[in-house]
Write a protein that binds this DNA or RNA. Structure first.
Lengths: 251, 251
DNA sequence: GTTATCAATATTGTTGACATTTATGTCGGG
DNA sequence: CCCGACATAAATGTCAACAATATTGATAAC
């Protein structure tokens, strides 16, 4: 018993969708709301499980049993059921009647599919962000992607690259201001989180990626949305090529 | 009592999904597979509600009450609850704790967002379909979009145009072979189904759309994927412009 | 006439027990 | 030794009653 605090990392980028209009202007009281906490708790659990699946703390094929989860998070089976339904809608688990839910498996074809969709959606976001953000928004990233990082990467230090990339992604998505594109990208990225990491760790990949991002950022700073979009698409297609080349190693 | 058969139209473009649950000649296997029917029934109800929401048979703001739905479809409240959860995940309804589910409202900004994402995803699908399908795949559509339709449209007959467009969309998505893009497009289109219809009914829109589709199909038949993708994007951007111009009328 | 308080009602959220189905292990027969 | 039938166990699916909460209407005070 008592496997409560196993939560682990569960990082993931979460942009949070607006809960739309309820029209009510007041209601600033957030703390004294037990029922609000209920729903928030459900989303927290969902977030935790998404993270565990994304980083393969729960590897594909793992069975997710209702009573087990209910005990671990100390909620009712009905709540767990709803959460499993959400995971199923997101494509993270497969449920078969009377047999329960298992963490979904990603085959190579699906990964290529996801790369194609990412190319379209991330390209869109880069274009929109370039149009919407003031040019100096991208200066800090050009700085962080500079020579110092190039040297670090040459020495095998890729974490600054990974972190900067994630920050840039978030800032881009933020300035793009398209909640649907953001939501869809979240769905895709949580499915390929580990794959993406492994590709970035391939020999020479970080160096190539850094260079291409510098090029893209120059277009963004110059306000050339079309060029920036094209650069972003080239980056993703390049990553796809690396995956294809090292496929047996990554999978 | 007994408000069972109120189901109504619930038309929607339907992917060749036949209900056909019974009617099988002398096949008593309905009782042999009760569990299979359960899940299929849930998806059927979900499909029905999606259709009603899409064509505003259930207009935005409509409250969806659990007992009411449970009685209409003759299922348990738990089943209805799961279905409402799925509708929430799809962004078709908003649920607030202890207040229930209401059909989501689409504001104009969200519609523009959806147009941008559709441009990216449908462009992708056209490109992939052009690459994957044999060129003669598109000949029947060029035929259907021909002079005869142009004359019909001139006389105010837009239904052939709408039907052909839907068939073309399905064939394109089929040959694109990207399940994620397909799924995302389904999510977007069921939210803007009515808007799309209204735009197609705007004066002159069908004529312009037909011409642009002929151009796109020529590129597809020629196997020029990049040109076809660009043409598709122009089409969607054009539709967006029409919406912008007639916004007050469409909304 | 307006506003605030409070009870009445309706709806959602939760719980636990029960039914159904699948997987597992055992036993007997071949 | 292998195979099938049966019993057992464990998990999911279902249901109805109960609890908590929001909405509505009425009443009284100002």
């Amino acid at each position: 018993m008592a496997k409560k605090n196993v939560q682990g990392a569960a990082a993931m980028a979460d942009q949070g969708r607006q809960s739309a209009d309820d029209g009510s202007a007041g209601a600033p009281d957030v703390s004294a709301r037990p029922e609000r906490n209920r729903k928030e708790r459900a989303e927290e659990i969902l977030h935790t499980l998404r993270g565990r699946i994304a980083n393969h703390e729960l590897p594909p094929g793992t069975r997710l049993q209702e009573v087990e989860l209910a005990e671990e998070f100390d909620v009712s089976r009905a709540a767990v059921r709803e959460i499993l339904g959400a995971l199923e809608q997101r494509g993270l688990v497969n449920r078969v009647p009377n047999r329960g839910a298992v963490v979904a498996r990603l085959d190579i074809e699906e990964i290529y599919e996801i790369f194609d969709v990412r190319e379209a959606l991330e390209g869109l976001c880069v274009r929109l962000a370039t149009q919407n953000a003031p040019p100096q928004t991208w200066d800090p990233f050009l700085e962080r992607f500079g020579d110092e990082m190039a040297e670090a990467i040459a020495k095998g230090e890729v974490e600054p690259y990974i972190d900067t990339l994630e920050d840039l992604r978030r800032e881009t998505v933020r300035w793009a201001g398209n909640s649907h594109a953001t939501h869809f990208l979240d769905l895709l990225l949580e499915k390929t989180h580990l794959i993406k990491l492994r590709v970035m760790l391939l020999p020479g990949r970080a160096a190539a990626g850094r260079e291409m991002h510098v090029e893209m950022l120059r277009h963004m700073r110059a306000g050339d949305a079309a060029a920036a979009e094209a650069a972003k698409k080239r980056i993703i297609r390049s990553a796809r090529d690396w995956l294809e080349r090292y496929r047996s190693f990554v999978m």
